[in-house]
Computed example of a mutant assay.
Amino acid sequence: MLVLHSVHFDKEIPHWRTLMEEIRINVLVLVTLGKVKYTVNGQPIIAERGDLLVLPKGVRRAGENDESGLHQKYTILFHCGADVAEAIPFLRGNGPTLFKPRNFETVRRKFEQLFLESREAKSYSSFISLGVLQELLGMLAREFEQPEVSPMKMKYAQKIQQYLLEHYREQVQINELASLIRRSPNYTISIYREVTGHSPIRYLHQLRIIEACNLLLNSDMSISSISSYLGYYDTSYFFRIFKKQTSYSPSEFAVNGRLMEQSGGFV
C-alpha cells in the first residue's frame, strides 16, 4: 500500500524552522538551492543542493535555515505499508538517509510534477500522482543501490540530459549528443546508461509521452497534431511508443480522461 499525503515547495522562506517532533509519516526532501540544517534523532544533518534526505516515520527531527542563507526544497509526505517499506532499501531502517541522486534533474522534475499535480484539480491527478511517486521511489532505490560513478561521467550525463530537456520535440541524433561531450556515439550511450539506467533515446520518448498525456487531457489538439508537435511524424509510431509507455493507446487515454471528467474523477 502506498498513499501520497501531500507535496510542498519551500522557496527561500525567511526564518524557516520546524520544531523537534516525532514524525508520523515518511518524508522525502530534495534540496534544489542552498543548504538546510536538520537535527534527526539527535544528530546534525546538512542537506545542500542536489541532496535527497529520507526521513522514515518514527524519527524525531527539527529543521531550520542554514547560516549560509535561504534555501529551496521540495518535500513529499507519504504513507506506505510494510510491503513497500521492505522493498525500498532506504525505508527499511529507523534512521535518516542522505545521498545525492545521480540523475538529479530527472528526480527534480518528478518532485515538480507531483507538486503541480497536487495543486491542480485535473482529471487523473490522483492516479498520475501515485504512479509518479511509485516511479520516483523505484528510481531512487535503484540509484541508492548502484555504485558511485566518477564526477566526470556524472557531468557528461547531466549535460546530455539538459540538452534533451531543451530539445525533446526535435529530431535529436546520437551524433549530436556525442558532440556535446566530445566522445564517440557508443561511449555517449554507454555512459548515459551507466549513470541513469536507460538510454538517451528512451529518456527522450519519456519526455515526449509525458507532454502527450498532458496535451491529450488538457488541449483540443488532435492525436495526429500532437504526434507531429512532439516530433513523431509517423503517427502509427507515436501510437506504438505511447502504448509502450502507458499501456494505453492515445485514443483510449483521451476517451478515459473525458469519462473521468464527466464522472468527477477517481474515488
Rank of each mutant, 00 (worst) to 15 (best):
V36W: 03
V40D: 14
L136Y: 03
P101C: 07
Y203W: 01
V132Y: 08
F104Y: 08
S190L: 12
P147A: 04
K155N: 11
G93E: 01
E22D: 07
H71Y: 05
C80I: 08
S190A: 15
N256L: 15
L4C: 08
A141C: 04
Y232L: 06
L215H: 01
S236Y: 04
G265Y: 09
K100V: 12
P96T: 05
H71C: 10
R109F: 14
H5T: 15
V31T: 08
G257I: 05
V54N: 00
P44E: 03
L33C: 08
G138I: 02
S247D: 00
R109Q: 13
T196N: 02
P89G: 06
V40R: 15
E211T: 14
T97E: 09
I128D: 15
L114V: 09
D51L: 04
T196S: 02
Q161L: 09
Y124I: 07
V195E: 03
M152P: 07
E135H: 10
Y232Q: 06
R183Q: 13
P151A: 09
I191T: 04
V267R: 06
G34N: 06
P200N: 09
L55R: 00
N65M: 11
F253I: 12
F127S: 12
F9V: 06
F266G: 07
R202F: 06
E211S: 08
R102E: 00
S247F: 10
E48G: 06
I45N: 04
Y248M: 10
V27M: 09
F99H: 03
S247P: 01
R119T: 14
Y233G: 06
F238H: 00
V31Y: 01
N214Q: 08
I210P: 02
H79G: 12
I201A: 13
L230T: 10
N103C: 14
K110M: 14
N103M: 13
L204S: 10
Y232P: 01
K243N: 11
R24V: 15
I191P: 03
N41K: 05
N256C: 15
K11M: 15
K110A: 14
M139L: 04
E64C: 11
K37R: 09
E67K: 09
K37G: 14
S190H: 13
N103G: 07
R108K: 11
S68K: 05
L130W: 09
W16A: 13
R169F: 11
Q161R: 12
T235Q: 05
Q262R: 11
L2D: 07
T246Q: 05
Q146G: 07
Y156M: 12
S184V: 12
N214H: 05
C80W: 01
I13G: 09
V27H: 02
I13E: 09
Q43V: 01
V132T: 14
Y192D: 09
I76Q: 00
P151V: 10
M152V: 07
V255Y: 04
T18A: 14
Y229H: 01
I181V: 15
V59H: 05
L55K: 00
I46M: 05
Y168K: 03
E145T: 11
T18L: 10
A212K: 01
G264V: 13
S263I: 15
R169A: 13
K37L: 14
S228I: 03
L28W: 01
A85M: 04
R61N: 08
G63K: 02
